[in-house]
Nucleic acid binder design. Structure first.
Lengths: 130, 130
DNA sequence: ATTCGTAATAAGAACTATTCCTATTATAAA
DNA sequence: TTTATAATAGGAATAGTTCTTATTACGAAT
């Protein structure tokens, strides 16, 4: 729970930069490939460790789609995601957020509601036109 | 894409029965443990294979939470899920479904919207009272 | 600038959840 | 019954992620 000292390493900077550059919610391996174009000796575990640190620091978000890989999102603001069933791409979506206050406690099994995530599944424009 | 003949085996019946009995969205391993109390020689791969068949047949649903395991749900009707951040339990929730028609195509990046899933994160009543 | 403690790294082993493989078993049709 | 083959048990293989350890390099204090 206490904050460790953090060094500002080249790898960390390039990893964050790659998440931002790749844009559309890359996976760890996609980030790894991008990073290795600039720093060819970077290891996958370094990518995973730094992604974990960046998530802990709230500088990026980890996003789960329908697949088994974790996607990383540099957009830390409130938004939802839409995933293409065909190509697997994950995009940002701005739907009116569900107001937690409006959820009747009875309907949510008397849980204390913390977050409401909306995941939309669909077909992206590119895949829609074959 | 053609339908294979399916045999009605004891294992398949006990696996479906366990998903129903365990109720609150068990994982494959939880189902495996329950099944082995009745059929001690059942293997984990048999559990996975039959869960896959049951999902394909629409008799149960596969549900992903925040964790890495897949949960199985005998409630095949339209509903959403709420997950406790503390104990990890996944429960059914009946929130007014999001009407796909009301989603502005612009706001959903011009995707063809197929499904809208709402995942709620919270604290369950048991965990709330320490 | 140089030294030095230690955070971060590279490389790969280990782990976890799931899927696949294969010889054997058992269902149900003939 | 017999028989063809779907389903099984057991375990190997895979995929994605996390962990381990000797080595490297950041940056604070000389």
């Amino acid at each position: 729970m206490d904050v460790q000292p953090r060094r500002n390493t080249t790898q960390k900077r390039v990893i964050l930069h790659s998440v931002e550059q790749l844009g559309c919610h890359p996976t760890a391996v996609q980030i790894y490939n991008a990073v290795r174009e600039m720093l060819p000796r970077t290891s996958l575990s370094t990518v995973y460790r730094n992604l974990g640190i960046l998530v802990d620091q709230g500088r990026i978000k980890a996003v789960k789609g329908t697949g088994s890989e974790i996607h990383y999102d540099h957009n830390t603001g409130e938004h939802n995601h839409i995933e293409c069933t065909i190509c697997g791409r994950v995009c940002d979506v701005h739907v009116n957020p569900v107001n937690i206050e409006t959820l009747n406690p009875e309907t949510v099994s008397n849980f204390i509601v913390l977050e409401v995530h909306m995941n939309i599944i669909g077909i992206c424009p590119e895949c829609a036109e074959h």
